[in-house]
Amino acid sequence: MSSRLPVLRALLFLLGVGGTQVLATDKSAGTEIDFKYAIIGTALGVAISAGFLALKICMIRRHLSDNDSSDLKNTPQDTILQKKRSPR
């Protein structure tokens, strides 16, 4: 733990120094939200989330259909008939 302490102090120092704003104009240093970029970021996040969700749904459906088709192929009657037809 003692080896991590200087790294933590350096990180906290850099975060404290990096958080200050220096403005060349007479504007206040309040937080301003640029709505154009907020809307673009939100739309991009929603699109990525919807794409991921659609991909997961397609993967689940494919997995379920693969399991259903393999269950139909391996019915007990088919395995009995195959054993009778091809003796070893």
Rank of each mutant, 00 (worst) to 15 (best):
residue 1 M to I: 13
residue 2 S to M: 13
residue 3 S to I: 15
residue 4 R to P: 07
residue 4 R to Y: 13
residue 5 L to R: 13
residue 5 L to I: 13
residue 5 L to W: 12
residue 6 P to Q: 03
residue 7 V to P: 10
residue 8 L to M: 11
residue 8 L to F: 10
residue 8 L to H: 11
residue 9 R to D: 09
residue 9 R to N: 07
residue 10 A to E: 15
residue 11 L to T: 09
residue 11 L to G: 08
residue 11 L to D: 08
residue 11 L to K: 09
residue 12 L to G: 03
residue 13 F to K: 15
residue 14 L to R: 14
residue 15 L to S: 10
residue 15 L to V: 12
residue 16 G to D: 06
residue 17 V to Q: 07
residue 18 G to L: 05
residue 20 T to F: 14
residue 21 Q to C: 08
residue 22 V to Y: 11
residue 22 V to Q: 07
residue 23 L to W: 08
residue 23 L to E: 10
residue 23 L to N: 10
residue 24 A to H: 06
residue 24 A to W: 06
residue 25 T to Q: 03
residue 25 T to V: 04
residue 26 D to N: 12
residue 26 D to S: 12
residue 27 K to G: 04
residue 27 K to T: 08
residue 27 K to M: 08
residue 27 K to R: 11
residue 29 A to M: 03
residue 30 G to V: 15
residue 30 G to K: 14
residue 30 G to Y: 13
residue 31 T to H: 06
residue 31 T to G: 02
residue 33 I to E: 04
residue 34 D to G: 01
residue 35 F to K: 15
residue 37 Y to D: 04
residue 37 Y to S: 02
residue 38 A to T: 05
residue 38 A to Y: 04
residue 40 I to L: 07
residue 41 G to I: 01
residue 41 G to L: 01
residue 42 T to G: 11
residue 42 T to E: 12
residue 43 A to Y: 08
residue 43 A to S: 09
residue 44 L to G: 05
residue 45 G to W: 00
residue 45 G to F: 00
residue 46 V to E: 02
residue 46 V to L: 06
residue 46 V to S: 02
residue 47 A to P: 01
residue 48 I to E: 11
residue 48 I to D: 09
residue 49 S to F: 04
residue 50 A to V: 01
residue 50 A to F: 02
residue 51 G to T: 00
residue 51 G to P: 00
residue 51 G to M: 00
residue 54 A to S: 04
residue 55 L to D: 01
residue 55 L to A: 09
residue 55 L to Q: 01
residue 55 L to P: 00
residue 55 L to M: 02
residue 56 K to R: 11
residue 56 K to N: 04
residue 56 K to S: 04
residue 56 K to H: 07
residue 56 K to L: 11
residue 56 K to F: 11
residue 57 I to Q: 13
residue 58 C to F: 07
residue 58 C to D: 03
residue 58 C to P: 04
residue 59 M to S: 13
residue 59 M to C: 12
residue 59 M to P: 05
residue 60 I to Q: 09
residue 60 I to D: 07
residue 61 R to I: 05
residue 62 R to P: 00
residue 62 R to M: 02
residue 62 R to Y: 01
residue 63 H to N: 10
residue 64 L to Y: 05
residue 64 L to R: 07
residue 64 L to F: 02
residue 65 S to L: 06
residue 65 S to Y: 05
residue 67 N to D: 12
residue 68 D to C: 06
residue 68 D to S: 08
residue 69 S to P: 07
residue 69 S to H: 11
residue 69 S to C: 14
residue 70 S to M: 05
residue 70 S to R: 13
residue 71 D to N: 07
residue 71 D to C: 06
residue 72 L to R: 15
residue 73 K to R: 08
residue 73 K to L: 07
residue 74 N to Q: 02
residue 75 T to Q: 04
residue 75 T to Y: 05
residue 76 P to C: 03
residue 76 P to H: 06
residue 77 Q to D: 03
residue 77 Q to H: 03
residue 77 Q to L: 03
residue 77 Q to Y: 02
residue 78 D to A: 10
residue 78 D to T: 12
residue 79 T to R: 13
residue 79 T to C: 05
residue 79 T to Q: 11
residue 80 I to H: 08
residue 80 I to A: 06
residue 80 I to D: 09
residue 81 L to Q: 13
residue 83 K to Q: 15
residue 83 K to G: 12
residue 83 K to I: 12
residue 84 K to Y: 05
residue 85 R to I: 03
residue 85 R to S: 05
residue 85 R to Q: 06
residue 87 P to H: 00
residue 87 P to V: 00
